[in-house]
Design a protein around this nucleic acid. Structure first.
Lengths: 140, 140
DNA sequence: CTGGATATTGCAACTTTGTTGCAAATTGCT
DNA sequence: AGCAATTTGCAACAAAGTTGCAATATCCAG
């Protein structure tokens, strides 16, 4: 398994041209292993990129399956890197659990924890199960 | 158990004055047993109430535990009626599962389905578990 | 390593969503 | 009915997200 592929390689594999904004934003995701909101990215890039560019870059990454969105209890939009298998197909909402810390407010993707089965009433056919756990994280 | 209490009674029990907007919005929630977004309510009340009033009414209802918010995969804000026990304490994010239909886009509160246990890595202390299932509902 | 087709960016303008302060209207209570 | 306390609507604003288009950067063939 190829753990660390370069950012350029990652972009190339997804048929995306290699641009400053895309590289910078991917770097941020790799540095920050928690999830980030659009506004976090704006701040961490020191307004070097236009707001619109960031929106479009995030959207492109989601479409390509490079990142995924995370539903949060307060309904803000968060993004995090997808793991290997996710990027190939382009389908999202991986089956892992997300954890939001009440204290430090960091959101973790707990890739090792697989979403549990849920028994639904008759007639409901599940496709995707999103699980968001709120509580106190291991660093708090 | 007192299944159906009147809307006026519900408001009175929560120390809220009985006003047109509050009554109308509660009626909508009772008629619609799915969840509603702010914009749904605006439409269904024919713009009879100011946008601000609707925001404030929803906020008040959430604080009193009459309704709760639902995290959705697309990060829009949805509200649904809480069941009996929820209203007393004012704490939210009930432990039931939410189901969003991909086809008709209705969101259901599956009160009978209790959130499953999740095994977290060491150091993570869970408080609330939100489960949102996406798929096809029983009416589609 | 250069030129030009293609993709991406930045800007401006706009829409939608949500917030705040304050005066006017409504509600609850005596 | 009348008065204090809540609630509403308005106006103005802030934040979040979208769209069209011209300018720029990227990629690729030669």
């Amino acid at each position: 398994m190829m753990e660390t592929i370069s950012i350029d390689e990652l972009l190339r594999r997804n048929q995306l041209s290699i641009t400053d904004s895309r590289k910078k934003i991917l770097e941020l995701f790799q540095a920050n292993n928690g999830a980030m909101a659009h506004s976090d990215i704006e701040k961490k890039t020191d307004e070097k990129f236009d707001r619109v560019t960031i929106y479009r870059t995030l959207q492109t990454f989601v479409e390509k399956g490079i990142i995924h969105t995370i539903p949060t209890p307060d309904n803000s939009v968060l993004y995090a890197l997808c793991k290997d298998d996710c990027s190939s197909t382009g389908h999202h909402h991986d089956n892992h659990v997300h954890f939001v810390c009440d204290n430090c407010n960091v959101t973790y993707c707990l890739d090792s924890v697989v979403s549990p089965e849920v028994n639904l009433p008759g007639g409901f056919k599940p496709k995707v199960i999103d699980v968001v756990v709120t509580g106190i994280c291991k660093n708090c």
